[in-house]
Every structure is written in structure tokens, then in C-alpha cells.
Nucleic acid binder design. Sequence first.
DNA 1: CTAACTGCAAATTCTTTGCATTAGT
DNA 2: ACTAATGCAAAGAATTTGCAGTTAG
Lengths: 154, 154
Amino acid sequence: MPGRYNFRPPWWHGRFRNNGYRITVARQAILDVLSKTDKHLSAEDIYFTVHKDYPNIGLTTIYRTLDLLVQIGLICKHDFGDGRARFELAEGPEGKAHHHHLVCTKCGCVIDYTDFVEEETELLKRIEEELSKKHNFNIIGHLIQFYGVCNDCR
Amino acid sequence: MPGRYNFRPPWWHGRFRNNGYRITVARQAILDVLSKTDKHLSAEDIYFTVHKDYPNIGLTTIYRTLDLLVQIGLICKHDFGDGRARFELAEGPEGKAHHHHLVCTKCGCVIDYTDFVEEETELLKRIEEELSKKHNFNIIGHLIQFYGVCNDCR
DNA sequence: CTAACTGCAAATTCTTTGCATTAGT
DNA sequence: ACTAATGCAAAGAATTTGCAGTTAG
């Protein structure tokens, strides 16, 4: 079947279908943008990028799609303290590696780091276990961030 | 000088004076509210509480004061994902102990915990040291939060 | 007395919603 | 065809700003 092998659908198609969601141009475009960057984009950032190729896709759709993508676990929503939500591909088969963030409080730039993540995760696991028991809390996720001033800002 | 010893000014007066800021009724009232609660209050929460005793203090002043208090390090600003900023007294001579948060994603309640904070802090110090060097980043603070479902919500 | 602070109303900014239309499956 | 998804314009909600009047030091 020559030529056919190129048509393997993206790995995330199942995530949509299994939940009864449709695969639309807008959703593909947004996922495409997020797949091709290592930055942490805001809804508006994504809107402008998508807009170049698909000028008919509105900001509302961006917001609605981002909500959906967060819900089915394809992307993560972050708050770095600049008053707007920021998004990046979640960990996954073809997604990003587990990492945390270093946020510059001057310029707002964000550096991903993977150093110590294993150690962190190991400690987090123990903490989660203990806190779950103690507070009868069902822990699902965690957030670690460092704040400071980046190289360029000093 | 009988009676005089009661007039020792609150420990935070110096923080204002040293920075050229004035000590006003509004600022005292807001700090007072934050001193007397262990909850994480929003600007509006604080506004309503302050309003009972000082009906003439406006929401704008609350916002401006909170900004100031964050800047001089008397309080911390948090985001627990419910779309509004929340505030609590910072660590300090008479402030709270170092702690982190457990956030319920259903009802939004927040539990402070101090367990493991020493272990966390020890690890964080090592990470900070390493990341500072590696990324030439001047690390000032960190954020750790756990997300999950609280006892009441399940 | 003078600059810092405040209140009010209006403006901003990010995000959500209502509703008629379009497009996946 | 049938329903989910979309676009547009308008609504919402939290926070900020301009400006004239007030107050702490």
C-alpha cells in the first residue's frame, strides 16, 4: 500500500473520538501550534498564530478549545502571575517531558527545567502519601515553581 | 511611665516608615483583618470585612494597599485557580510559619500544611543553588501546591 | 504645609455566554 | 440528517486608572 503509511492519524485523535468530541480544523490548528513551540503561549498568542493560516478562527473558539484540551488532558494550563493563562502541551506519548518552571518576576519569561525532577517527584510522592492520609485528601497533581530574576534582567 | 508600655507600635510600623510610606487607618485595618484570620482572603473578602468597621474605605484602596503590602513583603499573594487573587500574612517575626497549600479543585477550599516543609526546604535549597548557577537565575522564592479533592467533596 | 493617600466613577483586560449559522460523522 | 462546534457581539468579573478632595507627618 504505497503512500498509505503517511496517513497515520496523529496520536491524539483517539482522545477526541473516545470522548465523543469531533476533530475540527480549529482543534487541529491549535494543537499544531502548541506542538511546534516550546514557549508558554496565552490564548491571544495562539489566536494570532493560528490567525495567519486560518483567519476565520475566532478568539472564542481558541478559549473553548483550550478548555476542552485541558479537560481531556492534552495540554496544561499555567499561571505565571502576569494575569493571563498560559498553555503548553501536557506530558504524553509524544508530548513533553515532566518538568517544572523558573519564572522571572521582572520580564515574565519562563525557563523549563528538568534537573532534579526525579528527586522532586520522589519527595512529592512521599508527601502526597502522607498528606492524603492525614487530611483525607485525594491528591491528583502538584505544582512547583521558582521565582526570581533572569540573566537578562540583571 | 505607667500605661505607656501598652503603646509599643506594631512590629510592622518600621516596614512602612523605612520605605517612606505612611501608616493610615486603611492600612492598619487591612493588616488587622489579615492578622486575625487563617483563611486566604480575596480583595473583596477583605473589603467586606473592613467595611463593617470602616464603611468609608473603598475597594480601590484595598487593591492599592494589598499591592503595597505585597511589595514590602508583609503579605503573600496567591492564585488558587478560582480567578481571583488571595492574600495571607507572609512569614515573619510575628507572621505565619512557612507552609504550603493543598487546594481542592471541587470546592476551592485550601488547607495549609507544614508537614515535610523541612524536607522540602532542604531539597529546594539544593535545587535553587544548582538552577541559579546553571541558568544564571537569581532565585528569590518558590511555590509548591498540591491539587486534589478534599474530604467533604467525596 | 506638602506629598502621600483615598474615594468615586470610568476604563481596561481577560474570559465567558447567547444565539443564529456552519460543518463533522 | 443530527448534533456538536463555531463566530460574532455583548456580557461578566477582577483589577486598574484619572482626578479632585483628604490626611498623615
